[in-house]
Computed example of a mutant assay.
Amino acid sequence: MYEPPFATPTRQQLQSTIAELDQAIYNHEQWYKSLLRVLISHVPAETADLLPDAHRRCRFGQWYENVPSAFLRQHPAFLSLQHAHRNMHDCARNLLQLVANGSAIPPSSLDLFENTLDKMRLEIHALRHEFMERVQNQDPLTGALTRIGLLSWLREQHSLVQRGVQTCALVLLDLDHFKDINDRYGHPAGDRVLVSSVQCLQALLRPYDKIYRYGGEEFLICMPSTTLEEARCVAERLRDSIAAQRILCDGSDQMLQVTASFGVTMLDQSLAVEDAIDHVDKAMYEAKTAGRNCVVVGA
C-alpha cells in the first residue's frame, strides 16, 4: 500500500543527518570496544548491557530513540535498523552473562553475535551510503537526483521485483510547453518553474521514492512497493499539484502556470530495466498526444 507522504529532505537536512549517523556509528564502535574488553579481559560489564532493554540504554540506542527527523524515523531502512540493533544487544547480553558466570563462550554463540553485529552495521552503513549518494548526485538547480546512478538503482529494484520481494512503479513526466515559457519569459522564469514543480513532487512523495531529472524538463520517479493502480493515483495527485501552481516571475507581476504529462508503468520480472523505461516513455508521449495534462498507463 502506498503510504501517506511526508516532506522529502533538503540537502542541508541530508548533510545534518549524515553527521548524526557518523556520530552514532562512532558511539557504536566505542560500545563495541568496551564489549571486547569484557569478553577478553573479563573486566566487569556495564550494568545496562545486562538488562533486557540494553538496546535503548547505549548511546547509539538513545540516539535512535530520539531522532528528530521525521523523514529518517519513517525510512524503511531506519525501521529495520532498530530490529537489527536489538538482536545484536540480545546476543551480546548472552555472551556477557556467560562470562559473568565463568562459563566458556561456545563458538555458535559467538558466531550468532557476529552475524547480528554484521547485519546491524550493514543496515546503518547502507543508510548512510544512500544519503551520501543523494547529496553527491543532486541536481544543483532542482534538488532532484541526476541520471548518475539511475540505471544501477533501477536494476537493484528490478532484482527485488524478480525475486518477488516487492513491486516497483515508474512514473515519467514532462512539463508541457516548457520551451514557450523559456522563450517568452526567459530562462530564469523557466528555472523557477522547474524548482517549484520538483517541490510539488517532493511534497507528495515518500523519502524513499526517488526523483531523477531525466532531461531538461523531464523527471523520472521510481516508487518501490507500489502497485500500478497506486502509482496511477499518485501520478494524478502530482498532476493536479503541478497544475495548481502559481509561480511569480522575477521583476514582474506575471503569474505562471504549467501543466505536465505523465506516463506510468511497472518494472516487470520478465523485461529488462531499459524496456520498462521505454514503456514509460511511450506512455508519457501518449499523454502528450492525448492533449497534455493527463496520465497514461503504459504496458
Rank of each mutant, 00 (worst) to 15 (best):
A244E: 13
E229R: 11
H158F: 00
E236T: 06
S109E: 15
M120L: 00
Y64I: 05
L175E: 15
R11T: 01
D180E: 15
C294W: 07
L150P: 03
S159I: 00
S252T: 11
L141G: 15
A84D: 15
D90F: 09
S109P: 10
V280C: 14
I148A: 14
I25M: 10
R121I: 03
V195F: 08
F219A: 09
V135T: 08
K33T: 03
I277R: 03
L175C: 13
P68F: 05
A92P: 09
H279P: 00
E130T: 11
Q82S: 14
N137M: 06
G186F: 01
R128G: 04
S109T: 09
A283R: 09
D139K: 07
L112N: 15
L205D: 10
Y214I: 07
D180C: 08
T116S: 11
G215W: 00
Q30Y: 03
A169V: 01
I148Q: 14
P224D: 06
A189E: 07
E133Y: 07
W31T: 09
I40L: 10
A169W: 02
G298A: 00
H177G: 11
P140G: 03
Q166A: 04
T17Q: 12
R56N: 10
R147P: 07
P140K: 04
N66G: 09
I221C: 03
K179S: 10
F71K: 07
A100R: 15
D268I: 02
Q97D: 14
R213L: 12
L220P: 12
N101S: 09
R192Q: 10
V273P: 05
L117R: 15
L127I: 09
G149Y: 02
L267Y: 08
K179R: 12
S196Q: 14
W31S: 12
F219R: 04
G263F: 06
M255P: 08
L150Y: 05
F78C: 08
T8W: 12
N115F: 03
L248P: 02
Q97A: 10
F60Y: 14
A276C: 07
A77W: 06
L175H: 08
Y26R: 11
L170Y: 03
V135D: 12
R192E: 15
N115I: 01
E217G: 13
A287Y: 04
V295H: 01
Q136W: 01
A77F: 05
C91Y: 01
V296D: 03
A126W: 03
S41W: 01
V67N: 08
V43S: 13
F131C: 05
E274T: 12
L151K: 13
C200D: 10
R239Q: 11
T259E: 13
K210Q: 06
D250K: 04
E218K: 04
P76T: 05
V280K: 14
V99A: 15
T8M: 02
E29Y: 10
N101T: 08
A77H: 12
F6N: 14
H125P: 02
L228A: 13
V280L: 13
P140T: 02
S225C: 06
D22M: 02
T47K: 15
K179E: 07
D49V: 00
P9H: 04
R11Y: 00
L50D: 12
S252R: 06
R73H: 02
L98I: 03
M120D: 10
L160R: 15
C58Q: 07
D268V: 06
Q245E: 08
E65K: 00
A24E: 01
Q269A: 13
I247V: 11
S225G: 02
H129L: 07
M284I: 07
T289D: 13
I242C: 07
D174R: 05
A231E: 09
D22T: 05
